[in-house]
């Protein structure tokens, strides 16, 4: 396995605040790495270092085989950057912006124009190509930013909070486009404060908080990391709760949470075999369950258990959709 992005021990101080306190990141070529964390966790600082916009105070990083400190020009030749800061010229049109970038990448005038046309088409912006960027909607603007970062056919693409502030429809469009990129072999490093987004898009997730990576793994691994699975039983007759409680206690050797009015019982369950045993015992006892489920904790719960605070930090994240219920 080749790593397209590899960062080791990145440290960055701004004055007295330590924005990064030894960040390690690794993205295998062709994968999507999600960097998940609340505002101020160090996501953007990490991306800026990996994009050679910022020099780390310590640590090193290699991107597409080029060292960010020793060969920044080599890195820049391989990356695309989309973020609220790496912007386009609002007074120019979509086409003009893309052609300008193509020309800066030393494409000929005609191939820069052809590439611009192709990208506008791909991102559904053909009709808007001759309008100034300042007239674009938020979603169009984000799509153009994405197009702008793809002009040079990068091997590694950084998406720094690509959907922050977008409505759900535009967000889904961006997600679809990101998904399509990996099928072309592009490695994507995506930062987000939305758990749902990381869950949807990323192959692996690095959870970052206070300038440190506090957890790393696949989404399901992270969910498991935060604790065991939960077994949930919903009985059709709440009168059976006491009997079921006894069965569950025997099976798991701990007391389940039981609600005698709704007939809902939940208990932590490490052993997957538990499910079939439970079905058998309930059957023998003649107890009918409407619902039997074994569920992983949500990433929100994972985040809470890893960082000790809810996702999103001080800022609430209304778009993550999963919070506030439960």
């Amino acid at each position: 396995m080749t790593l397209a992005v590899q960062a080791e021990g990145l440290v960055k101080r701004f004055g007295t605040t330590k924005a990064l306190d030894g960040v390690d990141l690794a993205a295998p070529a062709g994968s999507i790495l999600g960097v998940l964390g609340p505002n101020g966790a160090g996501k953007t600082t990490s991306v800026r270092i990996l994009a050679t916009l910022l020099k780390p105070d310590a640590g090193n990083a290699t991107v597409a085989g080029h060292d960010v400190l020793r060969d920044p020009v080599g890195v820049r030749g391989k990356i695309g950057l989309t973020g609220q800061y790496a912007s386009v010229d609002e007074e120019l049109t979509g086409t003009e912006n893309l052609v300008l970038i193509g020309r800066l990448l030393e494409m000929s005038r005609s191939s820069a124009k052809a590439r611009a046309k192709e990208l506008l088409e791909r991102f559904g912006l053909t009709d808007a190509g001759n309008r100034a960027i300042k007239t674009y909607s938020g979603g169009m603007r984000r799509r153009l930013d994405l197009a702008a970062s793809l002009v040079g056919r990068p091997e590694v693409l950084y998406l720094d909070e690509p959907t922050t502030g977008l409505d759900p429809r535009s967000r889904n469009q961006v997600w679809d486009m990101v998904g399509a990129l990996t099928s072309e072999g592009v490695t994507v490093l995506l930062t987000t404060q939305y758990l749902e987004e990381a869950d949807q898009l990323a192959d692996r997730i690095s959870v970052i908080d206070h300038g440190r990576v506090v957890a790393e793994g696949r989404a399901d691994e992270l969910k498991r990391h935060s604790g065991s699975q939960t077994l949930q039983v919903r009985l059709s007759d709440p009168d059976d709760v006491t009997a079921t409680e006894t069965i569950l206690r025997e099976l798991t050797e701990r007391s389940p949470t039981a609600n005698h009015e709704t007939g809902l019982l939940t208990t932590p369950a490490e052993d997957p075999v538990l499910m079939s045993a439970l079905v058998r015992r309930l059957d023998e006892a003649g107890i009918v369950a409407d619902e039997l489920s074994l569920r992983l904790p949500s990433l929100d719960e994972a985040f809470l258990s890893i960082t000790g605070k809810p996702a999103g930090g001080e800022d609430s994240t209304p778009e993550s959709g999963e919070e506030s219920t439960a």
Binding site: M1, T2, A4, T62, D67, D71, P72
Partner: peptide, 20 residues
């Protein structure tokens, strides 16, 4: 991750690793 990785430098033959 416990996966062993080859040195990323090998990924790009053209890269001399020196500052361009």
């Amino acid at each position: 991750s416990t996966t062993t990785v080859e040195r990323p430098e090998q990924a790009d033959q053209r890269s001399p690793g020196a500052t361009r």
